[in-house]
Design a protein around this nucleic acid. Structure first.
Lengths: 190, 190
DNA sequence: CAACTTACTTCAAATTTTGAAGTAAAATGA
DNA sequence: TCATTTTACTTCAAAATTTGAAGTAAGTTG
């Protein structure tokens, strides 16, 4: 079922907000060699934003399901994302803030719940007693590991060959670019 | 400032959840021709999910800022996304649900606010009186147009040449694949 | 036409996110 | 050195978003 859907074509509307198609004459050329997208159209940042919103929603609900399966009741998917953001390193709240572009009070709130649930440890730094150092507990590590295990199946479906991997990587890098552009725009104006 | 940041390298951690790197010997080859990502690593779906969450957060806050600038006070960015999802077509609530993978009651709530704010019209369909047909009002069209205008600057920064466009398109298609895989997994299990 | 399904709405509750106002420690500087 | 400012975070209250269960009304089916 999934296999059937994976490589079907996508109809994307052509749009020109801020573009002039004539600026890019090369666009219809050089299509051989890789399994790159077939439809050559112009993707606006709004279309991307809407796509990102949808995909994010889907992932969150998948994560919720996975956590329910695992019997995790005391924290939600948003907190799990924080856990994954911490990963296997010890870091300060500030560093965590940067990792996820969270708002301070938001992370504070999540960390409180995660600490209450026994998923993380917070230790005041010796050097700077204002700074709380965060680290996963055994329980936190375990949840992350379980979620990563559950995720393995998706990785296998999504990245079947080198072309898939390349596309995933391009997607990742392109999203990172969006992150930078949108982030800087928020701070300094475009 | 933005220009400087656009093409800096990205350090991505290599991970192997569900992967065996040896499965992809081709991956280090064929790097010439296009400005494709330089670092050849394996992106897991979790890394992508975290990236998507971050980018989504950034966009939402950008949209909020843009709307504040425009003096829009009666609806938030989430409702604006619904407006953008409607676009210039007339559709039913069900179709809108599919367009954004929303939950029914959620959309119902947003549509109520959008209708109260005068951004949309809802007309009961003649054929099927259960089905509400939704369409942007003049005011709704205007907000969309303003937001699209504001977005033009981002499009120009994000899509400067054919390579950028290609990467944006690959990102779009790859996200669409995630959407399908995660969506189907939610319904039928992976 | 009774039973079921569809298309949507309403409501209450939970979750997530924001923003303003705190606190305490560190850095700065007269 | 000690008042002032800045940093790093927390708390709180309120708002926004999202969920899920229960409802309504119109179509569809046997």
């Amino acid at each position: 079922m999934i296999q059937k859907l994976l490589h079907e074509g996508v109809e994307v509307e052509t749009s020109f907000d801020g573009y002039h198609a004539a600026d890019f004459p090369e666009i219809t050329a050089e299509k051989q060699g890789h399994r790159h997208p077939v439809h050559t159209v112009v993707v606006t940042h709004f279309e991307l934003a809407r796509m990102i919103e949808r995909v994010n929603r889907r992932f969150a609900s998948l994560l919720r399901t996975e956590m329910t399966k695992l019997g995790v009741e005391d924290v939600g998917p948003a907190q799990a994302m924080v856990l994954m953001a911490i990963g296997d390193v010890e870091l300060s709240v500030g560093e965590l803030l940067d990792r996820g572009h969270y708002v301070g009070s938001n992370i504070s709130y999540y960390l409180k719940q995660l600490a209450d649930g026994g998923y993380i440890d917070r230790v005041a730094s010796q050097r700077d007693k204002r700074s709380a150092r965060i680290r996963l507990t055994e329980k936190g590590e375990q949840l992350c590991a379980n979620l990563r295990d559950a995720g393995g199946a998706y990785n296998r479906v999504l990245a079947r060959d080198a072309d898939d991997l390349r596309n995933l990587e391009i997607a990742f890098q392109t999203l990172h670019r969006l992150e930078l552009v949108w982030g800087n725009a928020a701070r300094y104006g475009i």
